[in-house]
Design a protein around this nucleic acid. Structure first.
Lengths: 190, 190
DNA sequence: GAGTTGATGTCAGTGGCTGACATCAACGAC
DNA sequence: GTCGTTGATGTCAGCCACTGACATCAACTC
């Protein structure tokens, strides 16, 4: 006999997003999420650090993919070319089949400031990891930080455009356009 | 006779930063902050939305200064030139006399993730305001978003360098160097 | 079969935050 | 001058996020 249903973490993730969507983030209590999958509030907090993290703890994979892609770029590649390569590689996480799910998740996050804050923290963590990975390639600290932050800026703007209504291009295509725009923007600097 | 001492908001701000520095953010309760200036916890929450905001509610001025500077830039200036002008103008908020205070505040913020999150939210808000101001100058939406995010990236990296130990340049100088680096980085893109 | 492990439950407690209502100096209308 | 209003504050009750301590008990180990 099975003492506990398996996959508690996943069940909590799914239930939380559902409830946040259906009745709002603030209106949903942690006890409610847990109860809806046959667990207790205390157990929720053994799987996730807090009420927000349930939507974000999977992003560690994305960060790892970014770091790996930076390390795998050709040795002679310039910093922003490395970033470009990493953006291209990791864009595979966001195929057309994930667009609808990404839209739902983004809808919840952008409607709730506490969730937006947590997302920004994850992006900042990603930027730090990128900068560290660039430094391991010999890029000086300040330049690495700037290139990493810039890369995250491109990713953020590209992602928001990718899930926008009416947008049909892939994430990679949007990212490429933005990197082109960035080149134009920077070239126009005195 | 004076019923209440004036400047409650300021007194709470000062007391909060002091206590966060002396005994840590988590170890400080809101009731403690309020009591230390002769007020109650309930009153604290009438001045600040939450325990974090007490360190951030003054940043609205910075945002306004950025937006004004964008609007005041010469009509023919390219987007990143506008950003550069805004960075230069607003750097006046961070004179040498404020460096020590900025360091203390940054020390508390960077040591506590909840505070870091709030700061990132403020930066994101600043980026949105910048993008909107650029759009009012006729810059297309995506380009405006990219230029704004890039500008914030420069500001963030520059600020952290400005308050770093051993750094002697002004914020404007660091910003100028980073914009130069950015130009080089982008030019190296295929 | 005894001991160990590990995911879960239970319970009590702290602290952030809110709504409702009361207080009372200052201020303006008359 | 009195009187009603205003607005910053206090008081109190309560919800909920989150934590520490301890108990439970199927599964697994040896």
């Amino acid at each position: 006999m099975v003492r506990w249903e398996p996959g508690a973490t996943d069940r909590l993730r799914v239930a939380a997003l559902d409830l946040y969507l259906q009745q709002g983030y603030e209106q949903t209590t942690v006890g409610e999420i847990a109860k809806s999958v046959g667990l207790t509030e205390r157990t929720f907090f053994r799987h996730f650090a807090d009420k927000r993290e349930v939507l974000f703890d999977a992003e560690g994979h994305l960060e790892q993919a970014f770091v790996d892609a930076v390390a795998a770029a050709p040795p002679e590649a310039a910093p922003l070319e490395v970033i470009q390569a990493a953006l291209t590689t990791t864009a595979q996480f966001f195929g057309a089949e994930r667009r609808s799910w990404s839209q739902k998740r983004y809808q919840v996050i952008s409607a709730n400031l506490p969730l937006k804050e947590r997302e920004l923290l994850k992006m900042a963590s990603l930027a730090n990891a990128l900068a560290a990975a660039l430094q391991r390639r010999g890029v000086p600290e300040l330049v690495a930080a700037l290139a990493a932050q810039t890369g995250i800026a491109v990713f953020t703007v590209a992602f928001e455009q990718w899930i926008a209504d009416g947008e049909t291009r892939s994430l990679v295509e949007v990212e490429r356009e933005l990197l082109g725009e960035l080149k134009v923007l920077a070239a126009a600097l005195r």
